[in-house]
Write a protein that binds this DNA or RNA. Sequence first.
DNA 1: TGGGATAACATGGGATTTCATGGGAAACAA
DNA 2: TTGTTTCCCATGAAATCCCATGTTATCCCA
Lengths: 153, 153
Amino acid sequence: MFLSTTTNGIDAKGRLSVPADFRAIVRNGPFDGIYVWPSFDGDYLEGGGQSLMDRYLQMIESMDPYDDARVALERAIFGSARPLSFDANGRITLPKPFAEHAGLSDKATFVGLGARFEIWNPDVYAAHEVEARKFARENKRAMKLPPSRPVGA
Amino acid sequence: MFLSTTTNGIDAKGRLSVPADFRAIVRNGPFDGIYVWPSFDGDYLEGGGQSLMDRYLQMIESMDPYDDARVALERAIFGSARPLSFDANGRITLPKPFAEHAGLSDKATFVGLGARFEIWNPDVYAAHEVEARKFARENKRAMKLPPSRPVGA
DNA sequence: TGGGATAACATGGGATTTCATGGGAAACAA
DNA sequence: TTGTTTCCCATGAAATCCCATGTTATCCCA
């Protein structure tokens, strides 16, 4: 599970260290790296490991071939995603268009969201985080946890 | 079930012993540690074991992908939670931002709340507890138990 | 039921490893 | 060539591991 928020530096070569716990999650996969694409919903990047891509693929395959939503998803995710492999020290090199889309220059913030993660400009994310926490506080009553399962189930 | 209240010391390295009974609850899980995040509702930390996180993930995944509440919760919980693993003696190391959020420096109070627990500054908690008991006393008529099930069901 | 032995627990400090980051050299492309 | 990408190694800071110790709780047997 991708968790927590980490800000790392981007060096002159466009290299960016992926947090070690994120790397640990995708390790053991067939591909030693992550999949990243520009979000169609804002100025940030989205990403995940092989299993996330497999799930998206499965989801899309279950939709009608010419469903508008299917075509949109295919374009937005598969059409723009890139596999970014780790170097020996666990860094990826950000393609320029990605850095531009998210306004990344010298620092980037990884945000773990369970099954996937996002990469933001730190300043932009800070503002969003304040909003998100405020919204959560005001809507906490809407949170209903599913019942816990019996031990051993 | 996380129960009772325990206060332990925080050493110079930011290490904090998790009460032994709390550790016993999460033992046998796939991850030997606890998940902790700064509450979005106050100056304390919230936490639980793997099963709690699984339930939150289930809850969030059942919401619409671009629902505002979902996005806010994802960021407020997953975006700020960290897996804190036990060292050989059952201690966790508190990340600095967590200690700052909850005003923790030399001591921390673990408060068991059933499925999850909270970590407070002892002095702040003492004051808060007085308030909480007063509130409970004044609102006792609003407390409702869910209908009980037949024994064994 | 008392009291000594034993185990569990919280805490402390030093040593080691991991991690993020920087830069140079070699391979590649235009 | 000139600029770009990939691989390799160096380094300081931070996190982790390992061992030691006092104290408390638990057990066991007389």
